[in-house]
Amino acid sequence: MSVDSATVRKIASLARIAVSDAEAEALAPELSKILGLVEQLSEVDTTGIAPLAAVVPNHLRLRDDVVTDGDIRDKILKNAPQAEHGFFAVPKVIE
């Protein structure tokens, strides 16, 4: 499978990563190589084999329905580039 620079730019834009045209040109062959490496896996015949979710036998753990967290607004907002009146403040996003 080969990735062209247009695909790289699309993936970058979906992931909100700024990639210049020159970088996209350079990344295209790199990503193609990585995908090529991974693609070797499809040579293995997996007919009738259930997908493996974890390599050790393990079960999803569940929590009880109890409030054990929250009420840490100041901590939460401390990382925000901008916070006002207890809210995160972000550039206006409206359609």
Binding site: F87, A89, V90, K92, I94
Partner: peptide, 14 residues
Amino acid sequence: LMHDQHPTRSYVDL
């Protein structure tokens, strides 16, 4: 999201 609280910002309540 609240869009009407500030002229250039949207406020976010999580």
